[in-house]
């Protein structure tokens, strides 16, 4: 099987062309074709010598893959299904709005984190996406030209695939790549602290942290990661950095009826986030089958927002999008497409 060029960084391409005995400047030419001119075939890289194209084509292909199918919500949200070369499936959600068009991309096939409220978690973990497979969701999007923002909030935990996520961000934001401003990109995490530190140090993109409760015991029931990296430890790590005025830290807070929507939670959040320049996004819970959790009603969410705002925490309620096509927050899943090959250990 031929190796894929799409998703290689400039450094990786320099190593590739050197190995093939081609001049080093060929690497920069290739990045132009891949990330600026969006070619889908090596033969279209017309400023490369014939010999270079032949050598490349013997071992490599561009490897850009179009989405396999799409669904459209009544609110205009679109969900795209992509098949990887290893015959696994991921989803990406396109969310058009009046002033911005956002793509929510996946970073893994499945997820290892097992959060109680998430459909992706239900399918377990199948594969890390390569940088190319992450960027492919963006570059192959039919609406690519209208895209203004990308959020890494689809399937998977980005910090559990930090190498490839950082590579994909390098391709998106470098001058030799798509040259996007990192301020157009928001990467989400449940708080895998060491990788989150790397992300903060090696990228300038915004950071969103899934919090969902300020209390240890409660967060542990919702998110097993709390047993290892507690909310307290996450905040402690964030306090080590100066994020300046341009870079945004936000916290995602799915609201569960009678569980994390009480006055005690307002107090707990106020204490936990004290002094941290951040915003809090309240998210409607989109019920998943056989879940013991229910979503808070709109009135409670508004009350919660107002109380937190009074305490000085910038708080917003995120509008639900694409619920009817299972594209909303926490609903992405390709479990039905997984083919189990062998007997497991339980």
């Amino acid at each position: 099987m031929k190796k894929v060029l799409f998703g290689l960084t400039l450094t990786e391409l320099k190593a590739t062309v050197t190995e093939l005995g081609l001049p080093a400047f060929t690497a920069k030419q290739i990045t132009d074709w891949l990330y600026k001119k969006n070619v889908t075939s090596i033969k279209d890289m017309t400023n490369l010598s014939k010999k270079a194209r032949e050598l490349l084509a013997e071992n490599y292909e561009v490897g850009l893959l179009k989405p396999q199918s799409q669904q459209e919500s009544k609110d205009g949200t679109k969900k795209y299904l992509y098949q990887t070369k290893s015959n696994q499936f991921i989803e990406a959600a396109y969310l058009p709005e009046e002033n911005r068009n956002t793509l929510c991309v996946s970073s893994q096939v499945g997820c290892k984190m097992g959060c109680l409220f998430c459909m992706t978690g239900r399918q377990g973990f199948q594969k890390q996406l390569s940088a190319g497979e992450i960027i492919n969701q963006i570059a192959s999007l039919p609406e690519f030209d209208t895209l203004t923002n990308v959020v890494y909030m689809g399937m998977g935990e980005p910090m559990d695939n930090i190498e490839n996520v950082l590579k994909s961000l390098e391709i998106l934001t470098s001058d030799w790549g798509y040259a996007w401003s990192p301020r157009r990109i928001n990467v989400s995490t449940i708080g895998v602290v060491p990788a989150m530190r790397r992300f903060i140090e090696e990228s300038d993109a915004h950071l969103a942290i899934s919090l969902h409760s300020p209390f240890h015991g409660e967060r542990k029931q919702l998110m097993p990661i709390e047993s290892v990296y507690s909310a307290e430890k996450i905040i402690e790590a964030l306090r080590d950095y100066d994020f300046g005025r341009q870079r945004r830290i936000s916290f995602e807070y799915i609201m569960f009826k009678g569980i994390n929507d009480t006055p005690e939670h307002v107090k707990g959040l106020t204490t936990l986030l004290n002094g941290l320049r951040c915003r809090l996004n309240l998210i409607h819970f989109h019920p998943i089958p056989d879940s013991p959790l229910l979503g808070s009603d709109q009135r409670t969410m508004e009350w919660f927002r107002d109380k937190l705002s009074e305490k000085g925490i910038t708080t917003t309620i995120r509008r639900s999008r694409g619920e009817d096509i299972y594209a909303a927050c926490g609903l992405l899943s390709t479990k039905k497409l997984i083919q189990t090959k062998e007997e497991g250990d339980y």
């Binding site: 997820c111 290892k112 984190m113 097992g114 109680l116 978690g121 239900r122 399918q123 377990g124 973990f125 015991g217 409660e218 542990k220 029931q221 097993p224 047993s227 056989d290 879940s291 013991p292 959790l293 497991g344 250990d345 339980y346």
Partner: peptide
């Protein structure tokens, strides 16, 4: 592994074990 934890948790929930009694 996460798949075991998720599957067992769903089974326990289906048996009416309260979710706050499941630590993973």
């Amino acid at each position: 592994n996460s798949q075991m934890v998720v599957d067992v948790r769903q089974l326990l929930l289906a048996k009416d074990i309260p979710f706050d009694h499941i630590i993973a």
